[in-house]
């Protein structure tokens, strides 16, 4: 949205979801406690939290399957819709389909609910790479295929918002990579995504903003820095540390080069370059490393610190 401010055209990010003191109590237990949050259009928001922190309960309330005990929320505050779920695509608690129906038959039911024409089914099946297996029964699908079918369903009505609850749960590394690249592709199309996950690496790679939930309360929310997003931190050692330092400083893909208290060289390396390629690069410049360690992601450190602080 653009507004005119003293003759200047300013871009203001439109709020797509406004949550105000949302609470859910289960027989005295506070699953979600006075949660307030705002999500902007086009952002990819990562909802982080340990198991039982209230992520799924929060999403359940936002999707109308769990009734809040208190507070409220508003989807699309600028353009309210009588049934906002028709503008949202979501997966909550894993893929849920009729196991005796094929992938396509299941999507036909979803298309009817979402009031979209059948041709959209072909489009989304193509998008999630399930077109060739569309006539197989859902019960015969692998977990990764089930997850992709769930994403296909979420995309069916070309939603403005996509809500994904632990989309890579239980998947093998190949499946995780598939789903992750799918999410990245979807986010690049400008859709707002709300992603609940305990995989910090996933959130860091995909999200623009994040919030941390603990015992039903949001203890932190904010943007994910570009540095955190695109760099891996490596701890290095060798016999000629000063030469290693200058090689890193001269390269285009290293930044924040500093010495750690234990004497190791800490370097942030662009994640377009694999650790193996970086090592090969150093060998090519006559450096033989005696220590190479990929340290935990910064978001993970931040997450653990926040949880401990609280």
């Amino acid at each position: 949205m653009k507004i005119n401010f003293h003759g200047y055209k300013l871009n203001i990010l439109e709020e797509i979801l406004h949550i105000n003191k949302l609470s859910k109590h289960f027989s005295g237990f506070k699953a979600v406690d006075q949660l307030s949050l705002s999500i902007k259009k086009g952002s990819v928001f990562g909802l982080l939290g340990p198991n039982g922190s209230g992520k799924s309960t929060t999403l359940g309330m936002l999707l109308g399957v769990i009734k809040p005990s208190g507070g409220d929320f508003k989807w699309f505050p600028r353009n309210p819709h009588s049934n906002p779920n028709l503008k949202i695509g979501a997966i909550l608690d894993g893929p849920s389909f009729y196991d005796f129906l094929s992938g396509r038959q299941n999507l036909a039911i979803c298309a009817l609910i979402k009031k979209v024409p059948e041709r959209k089914i072909d489009e989304v099946l193509q998008q999630v790479n399930l077109k060739e297996r569309q006539h197989e029964k859902f019960k015969n699908y692998s977990l990764g295929m089930k997850q992709r079918l769930a994403i296909a369903n979420a995309l069916l009505a070309d939603p403005e918002v996509l809500i994904l609850d632990e989309p890579t749960n239980g998947l093998d590394p190949e499946g995780i990579a598939d789903i992750r690249s799918l999410i990245i592709a979807i986010s690049q199309s400008g859709k707002t995504i709300l992603l609940a996950s305990h995989l910090l690496d996933e959130v860091q790679k995909v999200c623009t903003d994040y919030g941390v939930l603990k015992k039903g309360r949001i203890i932190h929310s904010g943007p994910i820095g570009e540095t955190q997003k695109h760099y891996n931190t490596l701890m290095l050692n060798c016999n000629e540390l000063s030469i290693l330092q200058s090689i890193c400083e001269e390269s285009d893909f290293c930044q924040n080069i500093s010495f750690s208290p234990n004497g190791l060289l800490s370097v942030q390396v662009d994640d377009k370059l694999s650790v193996h390629d970086f090592h090969t690069y150093l060998i090519g410049r006559g450096i033989t490393l005696t220590h190479l360690q990929e340290v935990s992601y910064q978001l993970e450190e931040e997450f653990i610190r926040l949880l401990k602080e609280q």
Binding site: L63, G64, V65, N83, N85, L86, I88, A90, L92, D93, S96, F97, C110, I113, K114, K115, N153, A157
Partner: peptide, 8 residues
């Protein structure tokens, strides 16, 4: 649950 999420 999924149908309600889908807009039913």
């Amino acid at each position: 649950k999924q149908h309600i999420i889908d807009g039913l």
